[in-house]
Computed example of a mutant assay.
Amino acid sequence: MSDKQLAAVIFDWAGTLVDFGSLAPTQIFVDAFATFGITVSLAQASGPMGLSKRHHIQSLLAVPEIQQQWQARFGRPSSEADIDEIYERFMPMQIAKVGEYSAPIPGAIDTLAALRQRGLKIGSCSGYPRQVMEVVLPLAKAAGIVVDHAVAGDELPAGGRPGAYMALANLLALAIPDVCRCVKVDDTRPGIEEGRNAGMWTVGLALSGAPAGLTPAAFAAATPAELDAIRQRVRTEHLAGGAHYVIDSVADLLPVLDDIERRLAAGERP
């Protein structure tokens, strides 16, 4: 393979390859906080999506409205110990429920097959901890989603997104010699920033992930005008995060890869 051609694509999981709308983590954050008597909306829960799950909880507790609820209920600000307690409540709920949201996103299976035909390696990383990924990976494989490597959000000492660590761990595992020949595909801003920090081309997804806030049913029922408004809002967010491209879902990825290879051949770098 020429050094002017792509070598690998690194995918996120929920909202990118599986779980249209990224509902598994979003809804379960709502449910976990509810067990403490704290009301978190789906929109609030989706805000920090892309971070590791403990950092996600920490970010939610920093939301003024949520922190006010916490202090009203418990008579004090939340602490590190509270973050740990919510996380410990969240984890078994996540493990128990994630399988219900593991269906491949439409077009994902065909896209991965096309990447393999092109000789590209397929990496992946997630904000999910390894315990959850151990549930997700076999279910995804049974449904036709197979990757060459997967990195979980809690298994690198250096940390997770928006740092470059998980993306670069994929390159090490897949023996990719040049970050410029890699593409990071993600539905969240932290995931896009992860790819940029790793020196990769980045592709944001506008409609399939958490920022769009669409369930499969809501997506199917939405009018073209409604979808376009969501598309433009999320596109603006992703471009602000550094995305080189923004597409609706992974089903639209192949023409983007063609354009990136054209740019590589012309001497461009991410």
Rank of each mutant, 00 (worst) to 15 (best):
D12G: 11
G21Y: 08
R269S: 13
A266W: 00
W70H: 01
R161E: 05
S2N: 15
A114F: 06
I247K: 01
P104V: 00
A266P: 03
Q94M: 14
F74R: 00
E80R: 15
A221P: 04
E194A: 01
E100Q: 13
R161I: 06
W70R: 02
I95V: 15
A142C: 08
I109G: 01
Y101R: 05
W201Y: 05
Q67L: 12
V63M: 14
R189G: 11
I57K: 04
A72Q: 13
G75S: 04
D252Y: 03
A96I: 02
V147Q: 12
E100I: 06
R263K: 12
G159Y: 09
V146F: 07
A229H: 10
G75V: 03
E65F: 02
R262E: 12
D31F: 14
D110L: 12
I83T: 13
A45S: 14
C182Q: 03
Y245T: 00
Q5D: 14
K4Q: 13
S59A: 11
Y87Q: 14
V183H: 03
G107E: 02
I192Q: 00
G163R: 02
L51R: 11
L137G: 09
S2Y: 08
V18Y: 07
I176V: 14
A150T: 12
L6P: 07
A229T: 15
A43C: 09
A164S: 11
F90S: 07
L239N: 07
D148G: 05
A96T: 06
C180H: 14
D258H: 10
A229W: 03
D3C: 11
A103E: 14
D31L: 12
P25A: 08
T26D: 08
Q67Y: 13
Q67C: 11
G159F: 07
G21Q: 08
A62E: 14
G195W: 00
I10S: 11
F36L: 15
D19H: 10
S79Y: 05
P64N: 03
G242H: 03
G75M: 03
A243T: 01
K184G: 06
D186A: 15
S124G: 15
L115H: 03
D19L: 09
D248F: 01
R196P: 05
W201A: 05
L61G: 03
G160N: 13
Q232R: 15
A222L: 08
A217R: 15
R269C: 09
V40G: 00
R263P: 03
L257M: 00
D110C: 00
H55L: 14
M200H: 08
A175Y: 12
D154L: 06
S78T: 12
P138R: 04
G50K: 04
S79M: 10
L168F: 07
G75H: 00
V250L: 02
G21A: 10
K184H: 09
E88R: 15
N197K: 13
D154Y: 08
R118V: 04
G123V: 01
P138H: 04
P138G: 03
I260G: 00
L61H: 02
G21I: 06
D19C: 09
